Each structure stands twice: as C-alpha cells, then as structure tokens.
Amino acid sequence: MDTNRQDKSPRPSTATDDAAQPPSVLDDTQALLAELRGLGFDHLRLAALETQRAGESLVSMVMAGVMVAILLMAAWLGLLAALVLSVTENNLVLPSVAILLAVVFNLLLALICCGIIRRKKHYLHFPSTLRSFQGIPSKQQNTGQP
C-alpha cells in the first residue's frame, strides 16, 4: 500500500465544517417552529397550573365564605335572642310578642335585601358591553331614509 496516496472518497463532515457553513432558511424555519411549539406547550402548561391553583383558591374562598355566613347567622340569632330576653325580663312585652317582633324584623330585612338584588340584577346582563357590540346606528337608520 502506498501511504503517500490520497484517498479520493468523500470524507465525513466535521463540526468545524458545519460551523463554517451558515444554516439554511429551511433549518432556521424548522428550528423556529420547534421552539414555538415548545413555547406554546409551556404557556398551556402554565395556564393549566394557574387554572388549577385558581380553582383550589376559589373552593377555599367559598368554604370560608360559607363558614363566615354561618358564624354571622349564629351571632345575629344570638343578638336577637338576647334582645328578646332583655325585653321580656323587663316585662315590657310578652315573650311571644317579642319573638314575633324579631321574626317580623328579620323578614323586613330580607325584603329589603331582595329589593336590592332585584335592582342590581340588571347589571348581570352586561348592558353597556352589549350596547357596545351593537355599534352606533348610521344616519340613514335614524332618519328612516334609504
């Protein structure tokens, strides 16, 4: 064998050869799409994790709200019971009348709260937002002319 003879077969490319050649547009596009896919997956995963955390927080808040409502109801009933007892101990009214007055007072407050709810329910339909979606009528529609 001749050691001085040069091999005419193509040699495999090395990292130094690849660094010398700029990447093609197709390679750049494929790399960009792969990166965008990864970024989109990361955003979806983050949204899913935050949604899970928000759901857990909402459940905790609702549970705490229910507990607060129960405690406030117990405090209100205790306040009414103390008021009824103090009125009956001083012989101002009969116990049955004092209890009846407490019930009427509670019903009156419930009626006031229902009125507030009825007045505010209109805003649950997002009236301003719906009006903004309808747009501004043109002059032809206002005057009735074609």
Results as ranks from 00 to 15, higher is better:
residue 55 G to R: 07
residue 65 G to T: 12
residue 86 S to N: 07
residue 145 Q to F: 11
residue 34 A to S: 13
residue 97 V to K: 05
residue 108 L to I: 08
residue 46 L to K: 09
residue 81 A to L: 11
residue 89 E to H: 14
residue 96 S to M: 12
residue 6 Q to Y: 08
residue 144 G to L: 06
residue 47 A to D: 07
residue 87 V to A: 12
residue 73 M to S: 11
residue 95 P to D: 02
residue 76 W to D: 14
residue 5 R to C: 04
residue 1 M to F: 11
residue 45 R to G: 00
residue 44 L to R: 12
residue 115 G to N: 10
residue 71 L to Y: 15
residue 3 T to R: 10
residue 85 L to P: 01
residue 85 L to H: 15
residue 145 Q to D: 10
residue 30 Q to S: 03
residue 80 L to E: 07
residue 7 D to W: 05
residue 112 I to T: 13
residue 142 N to T: 12
residue 46 L to H: 12
residue 15 A to C: 05
residue 102 A to P: 00
residue 15 A to K: 07
residue 67 M to P: 01
residue 99 I to N: 01
residue 117 I to P: 00
residue 33 L to G: 00
residue 66 V to K: 13
residue 131 R to P: 01
residue 58 L to M: 09
residue 10 P to W: 07
residue 23 P to I: 01
residue 127 P to V: 01
residue 101 L to H: 02
residue 135 G to K: 05
residue 69 A to G: 09
residue 47 A to N: 05
residue 41 F to A: 08
residue 143 T to M: 05
residue 104 V to E: 03
residue 39 L to Y: 04
residue 75 A to L: 12
residue 32 L to Y: 01
residue 111 L to D: 14
residue 71 L to G: 09
residue 85 L to Y: 09
residue 83 L to M: 11
residue 139 K to L: 12
residue 107 L to F: 11
residue 112 I to L: 14
residue 30 Q to T: 04
residue 61 M to Q: 10
residue 104 V to T: 07
residue 18 D to T: 02
residue 30 Q to P: 00
residue 124 L to N: 08
residue 21 Q to P: 00
residue 111 L to Q: 13
residue 17 D to R: 08
residue 6 Q to I: 08
residue 52 Q to N: 05
residue 24 S to Y: 02
residue 46 L to M: 06
residue 144 G to R: 04
residue 107 L to W: 06
residue 137 P to Y: 03
residue 123 Y to R: 13
residue 140 Q to G: 07
residue 100 L to R: 01
residue 15 A to Q: 07
residue 41 F to V: 02
residue 91 N to M: 14
residue 8 K to C: 08
residue 71 L to Q: 15
residue 133 F to E: 06
residue 140 Q to I: 10
residue 128 S to L: 13
residue 17 D to V: 04
residue 26 L to Y: 03
residue 50 E to W: 00
residue 26 L to T: 10
residue 105 F to W: 09
residue 126 F to E: 10
residue 109 L to W: 13
residue 144 G to T: 03
residue 30 Q to E: 07
residue 10 P to E: 09
residue 8 K to T: 15
residue 53 R to M: 11
residue 125 H to F: 13
residue 130 L to D: 15
residue 65 G to N: 14
residue 108 L to K: 07
residue 52 Q to W: 00
residue 6 Q to L: 13
residue 15 A to D: 07
residue 46 L to F: 05
residue 66 V to Y: 15
residue 66 V to P: 02
residue 135 G to R: 04
residue 84 V to K: 01
residue 44 L to I: 04
residue 108 L to F: 13
residue 21 Q to S: 05
